[in-house]
Computed example of a mutant assay.
Amino acid sequence: MSEVAAAFRALYGYEPEGVWAAPGRVNLIGEYTDFNDGFVMPLALPHTAVAAVARRADGVLRLHSADIAGPVVELRTEGLEPLSGAGWAAYPAGVVWALREAGHDVSGADIHLTSTVPTGAGLSSSAALEVVTALALRDLYELPLSMAELAGLSQRAENAFVGVPCGIMDQTASACCTEGHVLHLDARDLTRRQIPFDLPAHGLRLLVVDTGVQHALGDGAYAERRAGCERGARELGVRTLRELSYARLPDALRELSSPTVRGYVRHVVSDNERVARVAALLDSGDVWGVGPVLTEGHVSLRDDLRVSCAELDLAVEVAVASGALGARMTGGGFGGSAIVLVEEAAAGAVSKALVSAFEKAALARPRLFEATPSAGARRLA
């Protein structure tokens, strides 16, 4: 925290007004369901984006990242336009744009950012940048916005400014998760429930396997899945796939002409059902029972939604074969990370097996770390 403030001072020549943090996330279950008005269950990571920020009154927005080589990006708040080609700076700039579009008088800011959330790993590094910017500006400009509203404005920044048609999960997880819990989120009405997720009490650990395969959700593959889900809903006569019950799924699939759309619909409806099953297991204290549901979800993501990749499939297969209770890819896919639910006593052996398997396949060594349910966005100083 002091290093971020010192870097701000060196960059801009004066002290920041505060320092804020917002975490990345892993999603335990419920993938590609949020933009279908469905259910998700993320948890916040201890890895965060941190921002030192001060207000400006002259309409200037200055942005700098400690993690990306390059000078300070200087923009005018009045000239911000969607898809402005600002690169990484589009994420915080998009938040300023979204706040101003919503009628909030944000007249400028100096912002210095750094992040420990791995980029391109499916862990919502972009949402962390958006939410930390939104929270800092809310506090500094004394805006009457709840954390859920900050999440919504951050999503708008990513949808309308950056151009990625993501759902609401990532930003809500970064803004609203609480330590020691997973967040059960209904993406239709945005109701939230914090479910205790104390893995050490059950002798378990949740590992993240960052395959190192970079993904880019702005390349069109994510948008194609979303469009396919929307097509399926139209053909079935429902507003969103949330309205299609799991019991009706077999009959509904027979009504769809496209095998691709059929797979998308099957995944979304079955993953909503998996979220309900995991919530029931956690409520009953059967954390061990979550493992097979994770693996089942990965098969659906791999075969029906087709968003996995060879490295993610290898991580899941090796983890389960070497003793994990369950595993699946997490996030948007096409690379990124997998999560592994494993007994604490077996975590070392499973981790060793994963590293060995990647080496034998002549793949880059995966980065492994524990996903500890952590706090959402907050002010640090």
Rank of each mutant, 00 (worst) to 15 (best):
C176W: 03
I195Y: 00
L145G: 05
E230A: 15
C166S: 13
N159T: 12
T191V: 10
R193G: 03
G232W: 06
L145W: 07
E179I: 06
T172F: 14
L150C: 11
A221W: 08
V208Q: 02
C229S: 14
E149C: 10
R156G: 00
Q171P: 07
A233P: 10
L153S: 03
A201E: 11
R225F: 10
R226L: 11
H181N: 15
L183N: 01
R226C: 12
M169F: 09
P144I: 13
E158I: 05
T178C: 03
Q155N: 10
M169V: 08
A157H: 03
E179D: 13
F197K: 01
L204H: 01
I195H: 00
R188C: 09
A148R: 15
V162S: 06
C166D: 13
E158V: 06
R156P: 00
G232V: 11
D198M: 05
G220R: 09
M169C: 09
R225M: 11
E149Y: 06
L199M: 07
G152C: 09
A201G: 14
G167K: 01
R231I: 15
G237M: 14
E149D: 14
M147F: 14
L206W: 01
D219T: 08
A157I: 02
R193D: 08
L150R: 08
L183P: 00
A173H: 04
L217C: 11
G228S: 15
L150S: 08
G218K: 07
A201Q: 12
C177Q: 02
P200E: 03
G180E: 00
F197Q: 01
G203A: 03
G237K: 15
P200K: 02
L207I: 11
G220K: 11
A223Q: 12
G228F: 13
S146N: 11
C177T: 04
G152H: 06
D170A: 13
V209E: 02
L207V: 09
H202Y: 05
G218L: 01
F197W: 02
Q171W: 09
L204C: 03
Q155G: 05
G212Y: 02
R192E: 13
A151Q: 08
I168S: 01
D219L: 05
E179G: 08
L153N: 02
P144C: 10
I168V: 14
L204I: 05
I168N: 01
R156Q: 07
Q194C: 06
Q155T: 08
L206G: 00
L145N: 08
D219E: 09
Q171N: 12
R193N: 04
A157D: 02
